[in-house]
């Protein structure tokens, strides 16, 4: 398990670092929102899910896409705007999809995928399947009306869904305390009658264990929805490849404890050195191959502009 976690965390971190490294060349001609620092939430939750389970994410979802089994080559190609991308280059970093992996899409508009996830879960329940859905969103999304509307309906109908709030403390450059009168996201869920728990410290094992337990309880709609508020921290700027601790809205000292407790570091230290080295070598080779693949892939043909506006009969 530790090896799997480490591999997943390392893979995401290194993919994000590579994206950040090439970004200044402007080969990725669109916005990116990096997951560096927040990988443990996606990995902890997705390791506890089944392959047939489904997730919906946000514009900051490179980590979730990879953790759920999304194709790496298609991810990098998508960022490069290539026709081999997961959305043929027409979606970009903010509109990722990999239906085969149960990664059902992300949106650039905060909170927008929350009700989609519940609708999907409603359909799963109605069909009698025992799959569940996890809806990922940030601490900013709980300020959207649709968050409350959706929790109300999900609890009312007892749909098999996990609400995963990735609380990284910031919406763009504004701290939660500037946006919400109370630090009480779990309580907001509880008033709709669903259990809600906060998981502190970006703790991947806690996330895995609690989500594992909750997901087995709610499979096939036996229990209603749950919410987990996973405390984590965004290491880079809201959008773009850089750090922004000199921008004035937060300090490096605030980030320091998160750097020190980085699960990638602690898990890595617990692994036997050769084993760890082999994982890293394998992952590096895969990443190199994915970037080469993206670079060598063609851009979409001009005709592609007009395809997929509608589903043709």
């Amino acid at each position: 398990m530790v090896e799997n976690f480490y591999r997943a965390l390392y893979r995401i971190r290194r993919v994000e670092q590579e994206i950040a490294r090439v970004y200044p060349t402007d080969i990725i001609k669109s916005p990116i929102h990096l997951s560096i620092g927040q990988e443990a939430v996606s990995v902890g939750v997705c390791e506890a899910l089944q392959p047939s389970d489904v997730v919906f994410g946000t514009y900051r979802s490179h980590a979730l896409y990879l953790a759920k089994g999304g194709d790496l080559k298609k991810l990098i190609s998508e960022l490069y705007g290539k026709v081999t991308g997961c959305a043929k280059g027409k979606g970009g970093s903010m509109h990722l999809i990999d239906t085969a992996a149960g990664f059902m899409g992300t949106s650039a508009v905060v909170g927008t995928t929350i009700p989609l996830a519940v609708g999907y879960a409603y359909a799963l329940k109605q069909s009698g399947k025992d799959s569940i859905v996890a809806s990922f969103f940030g601490d900013g999304a709980v300020e959207e009306g649709v968050f409350h509307e959706t929790l109300n309906f999900a609890a009312l109908k007892g749909v098999p869904i996990l609400f995963i709030c990735e609380n990284n403390g910031y919406a763009i450059n504004s701290h939660q305390s500037k946006r919400q009168p109370m630090d009480n996201i779990c309580e907001r869920a509880r008033v709709y009658g669903m259990p809600a728990e906060r998981i502190e410290d970006n703790d991947i094992f806690e996330i895995y264990e609690r989500v594992e337990r909750a997901s087995s309880e709610i499979r096939n709609g036996r229990e209603g929805p749950r919410l987990f508020e996973c405390m984590t921290y965004r290491w880079r700027e809201h959008v773009g490849p850089n750090e922004d601790f000199d921008a004035g809205y937060r300090s490096r000292s605030e980030a320091q404890p998160w750097f020190e407790s980085d699960p990638l570091k602690t898990l890595g230290a617990s692994l036997e050195i050769d084993r760890r080295g082999q994982i890293e070598v394998d992952v590096e080779a895969e990443i190199y191959e994915a970037f080469v693949f993206a670079e060598e892939s063609p851009f979409p043909d001009e005709d592609e502009l007009y395809t997929d506006v509608f589903t043709e009969a």
Binding site: T112, I114, L116, G119, Y122, T150, N152, F153
Partner: peptide, 28 residues
């Protein structure tokens, strides 16, 4: 009542729920 659903007064979320159900293969 599973197929004929009286909804809360939540047009925004319920539209998203309908879309999500459609993504899962229903025809709302």
């Amino acid at each position: 009542t599973d197929r004929v659903v009286d909804t809360p007064i939540s047009e925004d979320a319920m539209t998203g729920v309908a879309i999500g159900a459609a993504l899962a293969g229903l025809r709302p």
